[in-house]
């Protein structure tokens, strides 16, 4: 690699690196600094040590928001991953009409978040919503969904299970990267389909599953904001009060930028922990084998 071609490569990368510096690294630095100050966005920030974190520790709503977010992630991420894997396995083989099935499975992912939240508010309406009509016709229980504190969070997990198009497409690509010969030789050895799945498909797919779960943890932290804001405003009784909504309210409604920034840091730390946890959970089932 000559120094001139290295310079050219850096030239090509410069807009991206500059943008990353300005939009991610610099803001992350500002957040970190503001977390130790009292700041209302108007008068200059005042250093106040760890007071914001002490305030968070005492604030019961903070614990509620954090627990709700972690509950959402621990339910939504594995289920979304399973859903995407199921779709990819089902719609992997080339056959007639496969393009239509794949497009249909991707379609809910295309619906803009606000419209998606609105249509699910309608679908989940306990009295007139189509879902409860269907459940009643089948003789199944009809929960009050978003208006019942015990069901509200589950409802948001449930609706997130339909927007799994990206994971589905990524796993389709992963499946296509598995060499056919592996299955052929396994068949010669007399391995059953289940055996093939656990000893070929799953291990060879695990790097993709790790990538996907890491991405989904970060995305899920984020994706609770729009449904919570549009559908429930965090209710009923704070059952869907998630950390992004709390950051939004602290910083932009109450103009407490300092505590908002402290929350931001905690969110980042929790995301990091969950990501590492996901990484090690997957590491157990043989990432090293390929």
């Amino acid at each position: 690699m000559t120094s001139s071609s290295r310079r050219q490569a850096l030239l090509l990368l410069s807009p991206y690196l500059l943008g990353t510096l300005l939009l991610v690294i610099l803001p992350a630095g500002i957040s970190f600094a503001l977390a130790f100050t009292r700041y209302n966005g108007v008068t200059p920030p005042v250093f106040n040590g760890a007071q914001n974190f002490q305030y968070m520790w005492r604030e019961p709503l903070f614990r509620v928001a954090l627990i709700n977010s972690v509950l959402f992630i621990t339910q939504a991420v594995p289920l979304r991953l399973l859903g995407a894997l199921g779709l990819a396995l089902l719609l992997n083989r080339a056959r007639r009409g496969i393009g239509v099935y794949r497009a249909a499975a991707y379609l809910p992912t295309v619906i803009p978040d606000v419209a998606y939240a609105l249509v699910w508010t309608w679908i989940l309406n306990p009295l007139y919503g189509p879902l409860n009509f269907i459940l009643a016709a089948l003789g199944l229980p009809t929960p009050a969904w978003l208006t019942d504190p015990a069901w509200a969070l589950r409802s948001i997990v449930f609706m997130s299970l339909f927007q799994i198009g990206e994971g589905f497409v990524i796993l389709l690509a992963g499946l296509r990267h598995i060499p056919r010969e592996l299955y052929e030789s396994a068949q010669i050895d007399g391995a059953g389909r289940l055996h093939q799945f656990f000893h070929i498909t799953l291990p060879l797919l695990s790097p993709w599953l790790i990538l996907l779960s890491i991405r989904d943890i970060a995305v899920s932290f984020q994706s609770t904001f729009t449904p919570a804001y549009i559908m429930t405003r965090g209710g009923p009784y704070y059952a869907t009060f998630f950390t992004p909504l709390m950051i939004y309210e602290e910083a932009f409604n109450n103009l407490r930028f300092g505590t908002g920034a402290a929350l931001t840091l905690i969110v980042f730390a929790v995301t990091l922990c969950l990501t590492l946890l996901a990484y090690f959970a997957f590491d157990d089932w043989g990432l090293d084998e390929n």
Binding site: A28, S31, I217, A218, Q222, F257, V267, T271
Partner: peptide, 9 residues
């Protein structure tokens, strides 16, 4: 990995 809500403010 960074959630965007960590960058809003």
């Amino acid at each position: 990995m960074i959630p965007v809500s960590a960058l809003w403010l």
